[in-house]
């Protein structure tokens, strides 16, 4: 049972960090549906680097760097070229899925490094996740930068006339977002489950995307959602812990996805939206073209 809790928290950490990244981007008005792709890149390149150099540090750094780079690419398509953000996000996901399958398959199998030591029995990344959540919350709600980010996501025209560079702010956010997602991918492949396999992120990126919608763009609610999904995932992997022999283990595997679906539907109902006043960033997904 203790093992189960630890694994749940570890899984939550990955959801949290990936979704925090997406949340930062969305708060600035940039939707990136390619979280899964960025995570796959971070996970695969981090894994390859660590396994070939033997250095965890290099693995994580490379994962963060590639995440930032993909964020930059998404920014280029959606900010500079003003393209459809969904198309660009899809592109990043399919690129990530396709390319990492090819790049990673020679390295299929376990990492072959000693496990990252735990802190108080938990993965050190759990504490990192908490810290990042607190930082993101503080920056978004209490600082000038956060006010700028939120303003750019709500109404870029107003932000621009108030003297804020929409382009710079959005680039800052998408690159940071990409770094978070890349890091989350690397935590998956280097710490949570250090084995490379075909398409092994298994939809976590998409669940992280859904988590941002649940969180109503609030980092604190986000961490709650992550905990729920981290535990759900563990239950779906080890159903015997809770309800032995109730369903086939394969049916259990559908549970996190089904719950995501149900939560998403619940969130979308009129009842929920009026009750909680959930409002997305007004300019989310819209390209901003400077006037004149």
């Amino acid at each position: 049972m203790q093992e189960f809790l630890i694994r749940s928290l570890d899984a939550s950490t990955i959801f949290t960090i990936a979704a925090l990244g997406e949340l930062i981007g969305q708060r600035s008005g940039i939707l990136n549906v390619g979280v899964e792709g960025v995570m796959l890149f971070g996970a695969t390149l981090g894994f390859i680097t660590a396994t070939t150099t033997g250095s965890y540090m290099l693995g994580f750094l490379l994962a963060i760097a590639i995440g930032g780079l993909l964020g930059l690419l998404h920014g280029f398509f959606s900010i500079t070229l003003g393209g459809d953000q969904v198309v660009s996000g899809m592109g990043i996901w399919i690129l990530g899925f396709g390319l990492t399958t090819y790049i990673g398959s020679p390295f299929a199998g376990p990492l072959g490094l000693p496990r990252i030591p735990s802190v108080f029995g938990l993965s050190p990344f759990f504490f990192l996740g908490i810290a990042l959540t607190a930082i993101v919350w503080f920056v978004l709600s209490r600082t000038n930068l956060g006010l700028r980010i939120r303003s750019v996501g709500e109404n870029p025209v107003v932000a621009e006339v108030s003297g804020i560079s929409v382009t710079k702010t959005r680039y800052l956010c998408v690159v940071t977002a990409g770094m978070f997602m890349g890091l989350a991918g690397a935590i998956f492949s280097l710490d949570y489950n250090p084995v490379w396999a075909y398409n092994f992120v298994m939809g976590w990126g998409f669940i992280a995307l859904a988590l941002v919608f649940f969180s109503m763009w609030n980092p604190i609610i986000l961490i709650g959602g992550s905990l729920l999904f981290g535990s759900l995932w563990q239950v779906s992997l080890n159903p015997q812990l809770l309800l032995p022999d109730l369903m086939s283990r394969y049916i259990w595997r559908t549970v996190p996805f089904t719950i995501t679906l149900v939560m998403l539907l619940l969130m979308s109902t009129r009842w929920f939206r009026t009750k909680w006043g959930a409002t997305k960033p007004e300019a989310l997904g819209q390209a901003y073209v400077k006037e004149g």
Binding site: L73, I94, G98, T101, Y198
Partner: peptide, 25 residues
């Protein structure tokens, strides 16, 4: 070559296409 050439091709095609969306507009 290693596994997944067809998927890699898919990825590269997709991202190039995304870049080219610009020229349709």
């Amino acid at each position: 070559m290693s596994f997944g050439v067809d998927f890699a091709l898919m990825g590269v095609l997709m991202i190039t296409l995304v870049a080219f969306q610009f020229f349709y507009r």
